[in-house]
Design a protein around this nucleic acid. Sequence first.
DNA 1: CGCAGCCTTGACCGCGCGGTCAAGAATGGT
DNA 2: ACCATTCTTGACCGCGCGGTCAAGGCTGCG
Lengths: 195, 195
Amino acid sequence: MNRQLTQRGRDRKRQLMDFAAHRFADNGYHPTSVAEIVSGMGVGKGVFYWYFSSKEELFLEILREAQHELRKVQQQAIGDEPDPVRRIELGIRASMVWLAEHRHLFHVFQFAAADERFAPALRRGQDVAVGDVVRHVKEAVVLGRVRDTDPQVLAHAILGVTNNLARTFIFERGEDAADVAEDAIAFCLHGLVDA
Amino acid sequence: MNRQLTQRGRDRKRQLMDFAAHRFADNGYHPTSVAEIVSGMGVGKGVFYWYFSSKEELFLEILREAQHELRKVQQQAIGDEPDPVRRIELGIRASMVWLAEHRHLFHVFQFAAADERFAPALRRGQDVAVGDVVRHVKEAVVLGRVRDTDPQVLAHAILGVTNNLARTFIFERGEDAADVAEDAIAFCLHGLVDA
DNA sequence: CGCAGCCTTGACCGCGCGGTCAAGAATGGT
DNA sequence: ACCATTCTTGACCGCGCGGTCAAGGCTGCG
């Protein structure tokens, strides 16, 4: 749906995406109906289909935007830090804090992972994140700061730890994002056994 | 649905659960209809509702059974191994191999995680797994084999690594489960930095 | 054989879904 | 004032969903 939108139109679209993202996060993709979204916003159904060609497209747009936001935050946090290991640390911390502040988007990621329809789009964004981490890891290996293992494996392991700790301790138990980030960093650097 | 079933009935139920689990894994929970399941098996709809009171109950039964199976496999693999760190290793390896052989059930776990309706049941099973790992970790800490950190954090981190590496390298890239297990174990024990 | 009860059939139901569209209200440029 | 364009309305559509049920086959026991 590439329409020419006025400022008013762009605002409406934002409202729709934000509201829908929260409904999706609460209910899941399939159980959230278009009727529910528009009635929740107090508008007619036509509004929805003026801005989006389908429910699926809306979800994809939310997903893409969230991935883009998250990556932006990561890159801002990393800045021009020269140490690759510290870059990884900064990335983990920034991700945790952002996820804690946008937990509904974390759930959007989860739903996307569960749906064959959205998994490819999700994977594309995740590959970008993996690529970022892989670059830092490779650099760190060259410097002898990290053991020489397949960087892809290390990158996915890091993402797995970050994801799982965020879900469990931030979302389910309401712990502080910064604290959980420290735990994640410690585990990723040293594992179970101390260095 | 607690009916008195004959052997024939029990076989039918197995068929239904196995077939449905595969359909769910391929399509997701919501997009897989009861009509699709029964027509795929070449039986009438009444058969379905003879053995299950709802589509939701079927899914829950599949989920519970899968969790139970996985735990059984883990415990068998661990046997009476005295070393807590080796117990964790054996658990990871057994889980990876089992997941590789039952990838459709891995997807069932994924869908359960995404649906508010099933998340509690999934969490209950996962808490059992976490509890197992926590016990090994605590023991290992006492022996000085593992650094003294919150065992819950370590357990969830281990599960996160296992999950994510399994999904990426076994399911998406078709790598060998045993090899991926070694990677997961190495990361969990030592992290990025070598010991 | 006859009967009890396990099992199967498939037409049917009501509902709520994603999506459409003719009609008209706002908005803003001239 | 007028018009072009953007935006909004909500009744409506066809469909396929989860679930029901009266009817009848099948099986094994006495």
